[in-house]
Design a protein around this nucleic acid. Structure first.
Lengths: 150, 150
DNA sequence: TTTAATAATTTGACCCTCAAACTATTTTTT
DNA sequence: AAAAAATAGTTTGAGGGTCAAATTATTAAA
């Protein structure tokens, strides 16, 4: 079989399986009421200063309406704090609560373990090439994203 | 930056945007009534002989109930043919219609462009190394997925 | 001060998913 | 051969996730 078909098949399979594994890791972990989607929102909010809804929505490539719904639930579950900005009262600032920070760190440890597992499996040369390939892939999706933007 | 951080960042970004972009590429194309999920079902059914529900569901890692719903809609939209097996009347055989085959090929061109973007600037040797690396990772994650199976 | 623009939320409609109950059929056991 | 068990799919009910469009509140521009 030619190399392109093989690469394509491997990538497709890899993405699907990593998704499944991540989902399982989240739901069987300490924070059972956090969905995979919730976790991505938590990651996007991040550990630094509070962010507004629009910027987080842009990071996640969803509408602010969609983010509002996700944040409603995360606030109710106690992972996210939400306050109206004093400087500009249209703006809503969201940040991770203590519990949210713990969930973030918990999940980032999962990432670390996964990356470590990947790196362990590969030779130095393979690591370099993989990094290069992923960078290219990222670039491809970025430009495609710009081109197909609504 | 060290390889681990780079890999992690790339993976996080990729997972964040891949689905969104793929969905957009599909919906802005010729086949506007096909969702990303529909397309994955179409891919899983494939261009060869008809498959039964259970085997396609296993490929996609969903329950047969979920697949039934997706196939209902694809049959209604004219992308999939569904017939009961004569040999074993419990079995339902699904296959791509002409329209389904065209959609399959249309989407495979998106994948081709993606792979081309990756491979473009890699030497032949690097391509070999990447293939080997991805194969290794696939094998590794397969066994991990099996181990953590419900 | 009216008019625009901006930030977020709400609403209504779809899509996706699963577990569990159910139907129909085939296979195994007795 | 009749009864029981296994298998293949479908249906149902409930929970998430998504968007576009309408709405509210606030700020910036004319």
């Amino acid at each position: 079989m030619d190399i392109r078909s093989t690469l394509n098949e491997m990538l497709v399979r890899l993405f699907r399986i990593v998704n499944v594994i991540e989902e399982r890791a989240i739901r069987t972990g300490e924070y059972k009421d956090v969905t995979a989607n919730d976790m991505h929102v938590i990651e996007a909010i991040g550990m630094d200063e509070a962010k507004n809804m629009t910027s987080v929505a842009r990071l996640l490539d969803v509408t602010t309406g969609t983010l509002t719904i996700a944040v409603n639930s995360l606030v109710k579950k106690g992972y996210v704090d939400r306050v109206r900005s004093e400087a500009d009262r249209r703006v809503v600032l969201i940040s991770l609560s203590e519990k949210g920070r713990k969930a973030y760190l918990h999940h980032s440890r999962f990432h670390d373990r996964m990356i470590e597992a990947i790196v362990e499996e590969l030779t130095d040369e393979e690591q370099q090439v993989l990094e290069k390939a992923l960078t290219k892939l990222n670039k491809f999706f970025m430009t495609t994203a710009d081109r197909t933007k609504s």
